[in-house]
Design a binder for these strands. Structure first.
Length: 802
RNA sequence: GCUGAUGUGGCGGAACUGGCAGACGCACUGGACUCAAAAUCCAGCGGGAAACCAUGUGGGUUCGAGUCCCACCAUCAGCACCA
């Protein structure tokens, strides 16, 4: 009887679907809940990538284990279907994105079902469904009402390829994250979300969640909190002051010049005092021509111009110091101006050296030795040449100088963040319409909530406007409306939301996906929140993960959700590369189509291989040879039924092995060490093969442990050995700690740390009797050398030093 | 440059709080079955004749280091003039 995976997998998939086996429909069961979440896919035209199932199988394994452990499990799936590929495809072929999306979702659904994931298919959501985006729009209106959404005209990142504004997070090395076209700065009126208001809490609350440390680090770095001070420098001979931000107020005695960003307004204010205005204006113009990327590229060679005719006064040394304009100072961070301390800042040092500006050392190492400048170490630094700060460590000097600044009203403590507000407008068609109306009299007015959803009009042309305005702007019959406030003629916002909108709250919708009164009922939110385990890619750490934490915190503040954080635990998976170690792409011809794998080897082999291929959180290359090995393993599992004998307890010769295996698999699943789980199954398999027999108790335990990884073959085998209940109704196997410990140990004996022999001892055998055995075993290896020392580590090792 | 990760046979990778390096799989070699091949099964498989040598390199701590410390090198990912 050969292993006919096609038949088996078909049979069980149909059965699970018709019975609704994995519906977590009894929401408020008096049972412990577990909510596992994977990042829902964008249904692209290419279909499922072999990378998707890596994450999905992992959480499916955990979800299936949780069910066997008696939890009420929610493990949902949906589609994040707004986005540019469907729209670009529409521009090319004139097929409406809605049609493409529907088709792609159908294809994805079929593929996902054929891998046997235990998703609750009764809760599928789709971000492009008006019944879904109704609530995305509703959240936007709440943000607006609470002053967290605002319209601002400001230079934005504009992708020349997609003809669309981008958030900072979407610009990579000066090009568009999506299409790779250059990004330029463009003045545009945009909807913005005030994520910066939550910066502190987004940092602080990381302490309360169980995210991988690297994820926390990346979020912290992205938010970029820094503590320092704002200090006012008087401009001599005027009433003007120049405000700077510094994280090193302790070095203020070493501030020998100032630098302002090219965009700084000081120039206009003091234009009549500046004696080289033309030169300064020229410099401004030049840097305005450079994109942010070019400015960054130039960062090896610093440029700048001294602003002549005005001087600043260092408030502590009282000395006049020059003011420069240079584009290494950014207008968008801090106050757009700095005090330069060349002795203790690498950039200032470079600049000062190039333009021959004075460098005064004000911090020295603890032992007061001479060091090469710039000396930027804050750990060992001690203030020198700094009047009342002399002799203080950097940390104490900071504190003291801030006290002084505050007392004399020339500065104050200040915290800054690198995080910027979120640009929320996109000038594209295929996104959620922003539910706002502009009225000449009332300004921006949100739609009445009862008029939601504001549906996307059915249009035929999707091309963005020449000046980068949304395609919706051409549809005047949709644009022209009346003001929800005063009733006069008004115009709709024609920008749409970014792709990140729908995914910022989707995990809430799964809890109660068909609710038309609220985004989810309070009862459902209370029962299912928070997500217990969320797995996804590292590439979403600073985008999706941060955005959704922000929205969640806002919803918490307005009393919609019961928890401060959306996700209790976050892990990430590594990418899957082609067999040549490169990213899979059509042009490289190294794409593996999941359908082919399913056809040739079946879903169980596919799942086992994805878990076996390497450490879960690391990149792995696809290998056709290795997947054959996994198929061979399952084929051997199938043949186990021929070795079956009676017996409903473990035999003496398998008891240790079984208990150890249950322990290992149970623990390794929790730590996502799926590869070692699979090798444990293989080791078990080898043991049974050696014995040439397996009894019923062993068989049942074995297939139950393997079930989360290979659900189809194990259910089939279970049915064959006469069980009247499916594995999905079993309990997760338990082990007896005492039975995982060997009572005989092979003790290694080392001489000078090198292995020379091994002996068998009993567990916890008396040391003196061991010593005797050891000496007997190594007598000839010592040949007369003096034994200096003997070390016995109980039940571990015996080392002799000669 | 900064931050984080990784480095172990021909390959993917194991190794609990320092305690027999190379589990498990792939590839390979030999054997069984077969007219033959594939599949399957059995056995072997880091290097070296051996003493010994081997976990990116060089030092160190220790009875003992893949694991800890110091200094490097390489690769990958993220950030990049954030004061």
């Amino acid at each position: 009887m050969a292993y006919n995976f096609k038949e088996i997998e078909n049979k069980w998939q149909k059965k699970w679907e018709s019975e609704g086996t994995f519906n977590a429909s009894n929401d408020f069961k008096n049972k412990k809940k577990w909510y596992g979440l994977i990042e829902f896919p964008y249904p692209s035209g290419q279909g499922l990538h072999v990378g998707h199932p890596r994450s999905y199988t992992a959480l499916d394994v955990i979800a299936r284990k949780r069910r066997l452990q008696g939890y009420n499990v929610l493990f949902p799936i949906g589609f994040d279907a707004f986005g540019l590929p469907a729209e670009n495809y529409a521009i090319k072929t004139n097929v409406h994105p809605k049609i493409t999306t529907e088709k792609n979702i159908a294809h994805f659904t079929e593929q996902l079902k054929s891998i046997g994931f235990s998703f609750d298919w009764s809760r599928v959501i789709n971000t492009t469904d008006p019944q879904y985006y109704k609530w995305t729009q509703w959240i936007f209106i709440q943000l607006y009402k609470h002053g967290l959404a605002y319209k601002a005209t400001m230079p934005i990142n504009f992708c020349t390829g997609c003809k669309v504004g981008l958030a900072n997070e979407e610009v990579v090395n000066g090009v568009c994250e999506r299409c790779g076209s250059p990004v330029v700065q463009k003045e545009k009126s945009q909807w913005m979300l005030k994520i910066t208001k939550y910066a502190q809490r987004l940092v602080d609350d990381l302490d309360d969640v169980d995210f991988l440390e690297k994820i926390k680090t990346q979020q912290r770095n992205w938010i970029g909190r820094s503590e320092g001070a704002e200090v006012k420098f008087k401009i001599s001979g005027t009433d003007e002051e120049l405000l700077v931000y510094t994280t090193r107020p302790d070095t203020i005695f070493g501030a020998t010049y100032m630098v302002i960003a090219p965009e700084h307004q000081l120039i206009e204010k003091l234009a009549n005092k500046i004696t080289n205005l033309e030169e300064v204006e020229n410099y401004k113009k030049q840097s305005a021509l450079k994109s942010d990327f070019e400015r960054g590229e130039m960062n090896k060679e610093k440029t700048g111009v001294e602003i002549k005719g005005i001087k600043a006064i260092n408030p502590l040394t009282k000395k006049e110091i020059p003011i420069w304009i240079a584009d290494y100072v950014l207008s968008s961070y801090g106050t757009g101006a700095i005090m330069a301390v060349p002795a203790h800042d690498t950039r200032d040092y470079e600049f000062a050296t190039k333009f021959n500006l004075p460098i005064i050392q004000v911090v020295a190492p603890e032992n007061n030795s001479t060091v090469e400048l710039p000396f930027t170490d804050v750990e060992t630094g001690i203030s020198v040449n700094s009047d009342f700060l002399n002799g203080l460590h950097v940390k104490d000097a900071k504190k003291k100088v801030i006290e002084y600044l505050e007392e004399n009203k020339i500065g104050e403590k200040k915290v800054n963040y690198k995080l910027r507000d979120w640009v929320f407008s996109r000038q594209r068609y295929w996104g959620e319409p922003i539910p706002m109306v502009y009225c000449e009299d009332c300004g921006w007015v949100p739609l009445d909530e009862k008029d939601l959803p504001l549906t996307l009009p059915d249009v035929k042309d999707f091309l963005p406007g020449e000046n980068g305005e949304s395609p919706l702007a051409r549809h005047t019959e949709w644009v022209n409306t009346t003001c929800p406030h005063c009733g006069k003629p008004a115009k709709r916002e024609t920008d749409t939301m970014p792709q990140w909108a729908g995914s910022s709250w989707y995990y809430l919708r799964y809890m109660d996906p068909h609710n038309d009164k609220a985004l989810a009922s309070k009862e459902a939110l209370d029962y299912w929140s928070p997500v217990d385990w969320y797995n996804g890619g590292m590439e979403h750490t600073t985008l999706h993960l941060l955005y959704s934490r922000f929205w969640h915190k806002f919803l918490y503040d307005i009393g919609v959700v019961p928890t401060k954080e959306p996700y209790a635990k976050r892990t990430s998976h590594g990418m899957i590369l082609g067999s040549n170690g490169e990213k899979m792409s059509k042009s490289k011809g190294n794409v593996i189509n999941p359908d082919d794998i399913l056809n040739e080897f079946g879903a169980d082999t596919f799942r086992v291989y994805e878990m076996f291929m390497g450490p879960f959180d690391q990149t792995a290359s696809w290998s056709m040879d290795s997947i054959r090995g996994c198929f061979k393993f399952l084929d051997r599992v199938w043949n186990l039924q021929n070795m079956l004998i009676d017996g409903d307890t473990y035999r003496k010769e398998t008891e240790k092995m079984m208990n150890k295996a249950i322990k290992k698999v149970s623990q390794d699943i929790e730590e996502m060490k799926f590869n070692t789980c699979v090798s444990t199954f293989m080791t078990m398999m080898n043991e049974f093969t050696k014995l040439k027999t397996i009894n019923k108790a062993e068989f049942k335990t074995f297939i139950t442990l393997l079930n989360p990884f290979a659900p189809h073959i194990t259910e089939e085998l279970n049915e064959k050995i006469s069980a009247d209940k499916p594995i999905s109704s079993y309990d997760w196997p338990k082990y007896d700690e005492a039975k995982t410990i060997d009572d005989q140990i092979e003790l290694p004996i080392q001489i000078n740390g090198k292995l020379k022999a091994t002996i068998m001892i009993d567990l916890d055998e008396d040391e003196s009797s061991i010593k005797e055995k050891v000496h007997e075993a190594i007598e000839d290896k010592i040949d007369g050398k003096n034994i200096k020392k003997e070390i016995y580590v109980k039940n571990k090792i015996y080392n002799i030093v000669v």
